[in-house]
Amino acid sequence: MIKIGSIELPDFPMLLAPMEDVSDPPFRSVCKVNGADLMYTEFISSEGLIRDAIKSRRKLDIYEEERPIGIQIFGGDEEAMGMSAAIVDAVGPDLLDINFGCPVKKVVTKGAGAGVLKDVDLMVRLTQSVIKNTHLPVTVKTRLGWDDQSKNIEEVAERLQDIGIAALSIHGRTRCQMYKGEANWELIGRIKDNPRITIPVFGNGDIDSPEKALEYKNRYGVDGIMIGRAAIGYPWIFNEIKHFLKTGEHLPLPTVEQRVAVIRQHLKYSLAWKGPVVGIREMRRHYTNYLKGFPNIKEFKSRLVRLDTYEEIDEVLDEVLAYYAGFVAQKISGHSLKGHPIVKQQNKEYL
């Protein structure tokens, strides 16, 4: 069992990474059902919370069925971070996470996110301000450092633990790498092996298959894995990894029916939370990911992203089911999700 404050997680938990414009309640709902043990909100600007910005406040929405869940904030001003921590505390999540890892230019240029990696003293002060203003366990998500010449994650881990953070999630890239190249888990493993580090350490970056999850678990000894991009359009990855770690066997790939069912669930949550206009518009970015690799799917996807009502979308999804039922009936095999991270390690018939 892994503990973060009073939160109890299973051994080697699966965490859903906080992702801007992705990790909203509708997306989190389908990940929770499919095995995510701990989830986070999209990151929230501390300055936005203080200004009472509608978009920032909206991101504070959490639901009982999502627990345990953390709210993530970012910022570069000590006072603002402290004040926003108090606001988050009042909302009542299970933990408060600080983002010291976002590499996006508009965040970094404000001295926030991964920008704070340039100034560890400031990082410590910001974290102290948050800890002083909340009763919640405070955790941190960060990167290895700013660039290859300044990988300071060992100093960061020790100093943040010393002031009281309850867990640390590390993305195995520098800020300058953005999301390019291969994540360096050697440094993540070094943090876990550090005898001074006693808090849970979660690894993040490039985990896109059950095999890789098992390999990295054994090689680097982390307490759990945080999954981000690999879950977009494929929330089944959490349970697939859990099953593989337990049994050494793969779960069957999700069928067309299962994929369409999750699309419908996601869409319904999106409509309920965002309303009919925004809910449908922002759902469009997900269809390509959910239907990735389907043979001859381009026509269906192009129609789905142009429709404006649930009823129209529902009809096209029925057509998708009927079309691929025909494939199965004709026993057409060999249509694999070529290139999909979950399938690269498997030789299974798709559909």
Rank of each mutant, 00 (worst) to 15 (best):
A183V: 04
D206C: 04
K180V: 06
G189R: 03
I297P: 07
W236C: 09
V104D: 12
V305D: 08
V305H: 12
A17R: 09
E154G: 12
K105V: 14
P195Y: 06
I71A: 09
A167M: 10
D318P: 03
R173P: 01
P252Q: 05
F12K: 03
G181M: 09
E319M: 14
V91F: 00
E257V: 01
R303P: 00
G189V: 10
V256C: 08
R67V: 09
E311L: 09
G48F: 00
M283T: 11
Q265R: 13
R57S: 05
F202A: 03
I191P: 00
A183W: 06
G224V: 12
C31K: 02
I170Y: 04
K105C: 09
F27T: 15
V130H: 14
V116W: 15
E249Q: 15
P10F: 13
E282K: 10
I191Y: 09
L9Q: 00
S6L: 13
N194W: 11
D61K: 09
D94T: 06
D52A: 04
K141F: 02
K55M: 06
V22K: 02
A167W: 02
V30Y: 00
M283R: 10
G76I: 01
T309Y: 03
E66D: 00
L60V: 05
S129A: 15
R306M: 04
T247D: 13
A114N: 04
T142N: 14
A85Q: 00
V140Q: 10
K118W: 03
I197F: 03
A53M: 13
V116M: 01
T41W: 05
I207M: 11
Y350G: 10
L337G: 11
R67Q: 05
K344D: 12
G164W: 14
K110W: 10
A230L: 02
H171Y: 08
A213C: 05
M178C: 12
K132M: 07
E249V: 04
A272H: 01
P10I: 07
L304D: 12
G82Y: 12
R175G: 02
I199L: 13
E64Y: 04
M19A: 06
I44T: 13
G76A: 02
